[in-house]
Amino acid sequence: MTHPAPDPVRLADEITRQLGQLTDHLSQLSPPQAAQVIARILDPDNGVLGGITHLVATGSVFAKDQAEQGVLPAEVWLALGRASNELHDITLDLDEHQHTLQRVSTQPATTVAKPPAPAPLVVRRRR
């Protein structure tokens, strides 16, 4: 027996709710667990970011068709297309860091006598 297709608006609302739950959980995870979750979210093929990028690209195709028929202003299609392209570029940029995140997520938790050195990004000068 096939399942009826879910109401797309309810599905979008449910996905949004679950993303909020994921965000709440992420803020409470240990660093290795958080790295593992982030790596999965950023996976360009099977992650949330890749899925959202594909969703926006599909929305852009829809908006193009509607703009060609005069239903939507062309600016809507252009904005969705631009968003799709930018998300794709962001996905490619973040893909470079997949291996680092996966490596961090699989490192065993050890007691460290000396804490890791902060990245230059967070070092502050004393004045």
Rank of each mutant, 00 (worst) to 15 (best):
L26P: 01
L26Y: 07
L26I: 04
L26E: 02
S27Y: 09
Q28W: 02
Q28F: 03
L29M: 14
L29A: 13
L29Q: 14
L29K: 04
S30W: 01
S30I: 02
S30C: 03
P31H: 07
P31M: 04
P32K: 03
P32W: 03
Q33G: 14
Q33K: 15
Q33T: 11
Q33F: 11
A34H: 00
A34S: 08
A35L: 11
A35F: 08
Q36G: 15
Q36I: 01
Q36W: 03
A39E: 01
A39D: 02
R40V: 04
R40C: 05
R40K: 12
I41Q: 06
I41C: 10
L42D: 03
D43C: 04
P44V: 10
P44Q: 10
P44Y: 06
P44K: 09
P44M: 10
D45L: 00
D45R: 11
D45T: 08
N46F: 05
N46P: 00
G47A: 06
G47P: 04
V48L: 12
V48G: 03
L49S: 09
G50N: 07
G50L: 08
G50F: 07
G50Y: 05
G50C: 04
G50D: 03
G51E: 02
G51R: 05
I52Y: 06
I52R: 11
I52A: 14
I52V: 13
T53R: 13
T53C: 12
T53L: 00
H54Y: 02
H54A: 15
H54V: 03
L55T: 12
L55K: 09
L55M: 06
V56E: 05
V56H: 04
V56A: 10
V56P: 01
V56T: 10
A57K: 15
T58A: 15
G59Y: 03
G59C: 05
S60D: 02
S60L: 00
S60Y: 00
V61G: 07
V61H: 09
V61M: 04
V61W: 01
V61C: 02
F62R: 13
F62Y: 13
F62I: 14
A63T: 04
A63K: 04
A63Q: 04
A63F: 00
A63I: 02
D65E: 09
D65A: 14
D65Y: 07
D65R: 14
Q66T: 10
Q66H: 10
A67L: 12
A67V: 11
A67D: 10
A67T: 09
A67Q: 06
E68H: 12
E68N: 15
E68F: 02
Q69P: 00
V71S: 05
V71D: 01
V71G: 00
V71N: 08
L72Y: 12
P73D: 14
P73F: 01
P73R: 14
P73W: 01
A74D: 08
A74N: 08
A74S: 13
A74M: 08
A74Q: 13
E75W: 01
V76E: 01
V76S: 02
V76D: 00
W77C: 01
L78E: 06
L78M: 07
L78Q: 13
L78F: 01
A79N: 11
A79V: 05
L80C: 10
L80K: 11
